[in-house]
Simulated assay, not measured.
Amino acid sequence: MTALPAGIAAVAVPLVLLGSAAGHAARPDALASALRAQGVLPAGLSRPLAVLVTAVEAAAGACVAAAALRALDGTFRASSLASALLLALYALYAAYVARTRSGVPCGCSGGIGAPMTGWIAVRAAALAALALTGAARGLPGGTSGYEAPVIVTAGLGFAVILWTLPYAMIEERSPG
């Protein structure tokens, strides 16, 4: 089952990118507010950067998904590589913010409420590695009848795990 890693990437990466873009689009002020709170970039750039991030996530996710669905291996590899670079940039930024600023919101997926922690960076790095796997291996080809449902299910499972990881790792401390 050599198609499994590339298949997981073909399912999980676009789902997470498109889900994140949809969350940002549904709550457009959340990411801009989080970027201001993080204080890494000038406050005046927070709104344009939030719009740009939403558009880039949507474009990257849509390109990977469309290439996978249309079985365009070259386009899948190129869009997976672009997604890997975007997600690696997210991982580096998240690691920096988590290390230098405490208690700031991540702004992930429309600002659902997770603080910026190392787990945000881990998720982005894991997604970058998956996208890089897709870029290196290309589309899963020659899968038999039973492999396709396994690949899709594994991809969905990875997407759910990576989507929820930072929220699952939040430690709430009771007062007193």
Rank of each mutant, 00 (worst) to 15 (best):
V56C: 06
Y146D: 12
A98W: 09
L92D: 02
A91H: 05
V152D: 04
V160K: 06
A37L: 09
G44C: 10
V104R: 13
S83E: 03
G145Y: 00
R70P: 00
A78W: 11
A12Y: 10
P166E: 07
I112K: 10
S83L: 02
R101W: 09
Y96V: 06
A62R: 01
A43P: 03
R173D: 01
G19C: 02
G103A: 13
M116K: 02
R27G: 00
A154T: 04
A168S: 08
P5E: 11
G142Y: 14
A159H: 10
E57Y: 03
W119M: 04
C63L: 15
V122N: 01
G176N: 12
A114T: 10
D73Y: 00
V64A: 06
G107M: 08
I170N: 08
T2G: 15
G142M: 13
L92T: 07
L4M: 15
L132Y: 04
S20Q: 14
A131Y: 03
G145Q: 10
A68C: 08
A55Q: 03
A82G: 13
W163Y: 14
G113S: 06
Y96P: 00
L52D: 02
A34I: 08
A12T: 06
R47Y: 00
L49A: 13
S46Y: 02
R70Q: 13
S109L: 11
A135N: 03
P105E: 11
A62Q: 04
V64F: 09
V56K: 05
A43V: 11
E172K: 11
R123I: 06
V51D: 10
V152K: 07
G61M: 08
T100E: 14
G23Y: 12
A25H: 12
A65H: 06
A34K: 10
A26I: 01
R47K: 14
A71V: 15
A32N: 03
A10K: 09
T54N: 09
L18I: 14
E172W: 06
L17A: 09
Y167K: 02
L15C: 11
A60I: 00
T54A: 08
A32V: 03
A9T: 04
R36I: 15
